[in-house]
Amino acid sequence: MNPNHNPQSSDGGRHDDDAALTEFLASLMDYTPTIPDELVEHYLAKSGFQSPDLRLTRLVAVATQKFVAEVAGDALQHCKARQATIPKDKRDRQQKDKRLVLTMEDLTKALHDYGVNVRHQEYFADSPSTGMDPATRDE
């Protein structure tokens, strides 16, 4: 896509956009989003959305996937930044805890940038050892 493209420049540009959008939607049929179609269809149906077009479902799935990936990427940066701020002496002690764990704290910060306000309940206690052991990961 041309980032400098002005949509109102000419009729020819509109036709290009039309073709590009159609092509993109068609290419979604070959792209398998991580979020399964059935899940998206279920929630779309619950929200009142009606369309027999699988491409629109895929479009929503891809948009959601992009959103989640962006939030996760931001949270990852927060996580890395937090680990970097740990003083050197402590870091040596916690060398074994170098694993990148998605914590509620980082997620809250990341989601805040996207207009989603998530907060721990004051009494909510997530075990600090959660996510440290791969065996407990899928519990």
Partner: peptide, 19 residues
């Protein structure tokens, strides 16, 4: 799965549920 693809090793259960 998306978290894993972003480079996370693990997650807190509550964070995953929230996300």
């Amino acid at each position: 799965q998306l978290l894993e693809s972003q480079g996370f090793h693990s997650f807190q259960q509550s964070a995953l549920e929230a996300l």
